[in-house]
Nucleic acid binder design. Structure first.
Length: 323
DNA sequence: CGTATTTGACCCGCGC
DNA sequence: GCGCGGGTCAAATACG
């Protein structure tokens, strides 16, 4: 096992798959450390102490805190770490090699669907979940019936316009790449596959999953990078409105799901958890506005430029500028 | 038998 | 308007 990489230890059978971000040693997984945010000003990040991820995720910090602390706005940002040496590729493992996020403005866009609540995932309310579900149902209904209930052409046009407005509303999304032989990374939540599509210019299909918990509209896409088949690209969309089933089952093993926090998880913070030598590889791209852009990214869109490059833990954040 | 997966069909947005 | 590609549905199928 490399000294320089986090790892994802897929146990053979019956084990709980740990999520890859939190430490070299499984015994340390109970207390994954991420930098506490203190002494920062608007443009600087100074990791002055460490807190457990548990603290971070469960109330002591929320998205706003994090985002402001990291100098993030609610507008999109995207952080990509395209390459990490994986020295021990013989074992089944995954290494987080990238953090990419879509944090669409929760306030500025048409809000037919529930706007992403930029708080911690645990603060999501049932109302929010219900709204999300309702929205989903409405959308589905409209899709199936083609708004025929509206009757005349005028109503249809209005309906179409509404749908158009709906479409612009996007869930929070968080994508990251993980070096793994396993496509569907175990993250503690239960997912039901609801679709699979071939991806243009890729030999690997894209799989679509939905959280099996009722009224939880979180979705995720899983695909392999066509450029590097060893890399799995996972995209989470939405926020869970329930606890992680695995943690509720009282597993002693550490299991922090990506989806448990990723939807609210600033990429900078994610990346901060990477070893400094990996942070040097971080790239930043233009805002991630649509899935199309995402694929442009995969295609190696040259607009991505080197971002950061310092060797200290915070330098890359310190240097953050919109591309 | 209940649940999960597969997969072809369908809808929609977007670019031309 | 048309074609393409992404995303989703839902019936059929597989599985435990």
């Amino acid at each position: 096992m490399s000294d320089n990489h986090f790892y994802h230890d897929y146990m053979g059978t019956g084990g709980i798959n740990t999520f890859p971000f939190f430490g070299e040693n499984p015994s340390n997984c109970d207390q994954p450390i991420i930098p506490n945010i203190q002494n920062q000003n608007q443009h600087q990040f100074v990791p002055s102490s460490y807190m457990s991820l548990t603290e971070c995720l469960h109330g002591s910090m929320d998205y706003n805190t994090l985002s402001s602390a990291f100098g993030m706005s609610c507008s999109s940002s995207e952080v990509v770490c395209p390459h990490v040496d994986h020295q021990d590729s013989s074992r089944k493992s995954s290494v987080p090699v990238a953090a990419e996020t879509v944090l669409d403005s929760p306030l500025g866009e048409t809000s037919v669907e529930i706007p992403p609540t930029p708080n911690s995932s645990t603060s999501s309310t049932s109302n929010e979940a219900g709204g999300q579900e309702d929205s989903f149902k409405i959308k589905k209904h409209m899709q199936k019936k083609g708004c025929q209930e509206e009757g005349d052409d005028k109503s249809k046009k209005e309906c179409k316009a509404k749908k158009k407005g709906e479409k612009k509303q996007k869930e929070q999304r968080f994508a990251f790449m993980t070096k793994s032989e396993i496509d569907n990374l175990e993250d503690g939540y239960r997912w039901r596959k609801y679709g699979q599509k071939t991806v243009k210019n890729s030999n690997f299909p894209r799989n679509y999953y939905r959280c099996t918990t009722q009224k939880c509209g979180v979705k995720k896409r899983v695909e392999r990078s066509y450029e590097d088949p060893s890399i799995v690209i996972t995209t989470y969309e939405g926020q869970h409105n329930h606890h992680c089933p695995a943690t509720l089952r009282g597993n002693s093993s550490f299991l922090y799901s990506s989806s448990h926090f990723m939807p609210n998880f600033p990429p900078q913070l994610f990346a901060q958890m990477l070893p400094p030598n990996n942070q040097q590889n971080l790239l930043i791209s233009s805002p991630y506005n649509s899935s199309n852009n995402y694929h442009q990214h995969q295609a190696g869109n040259p607009e991505y430029s080197v971002f950061g490059g310092g060797t200290d833990d915070a330098s890359w954040i310190h240097k953050q500028e919109p591309p």
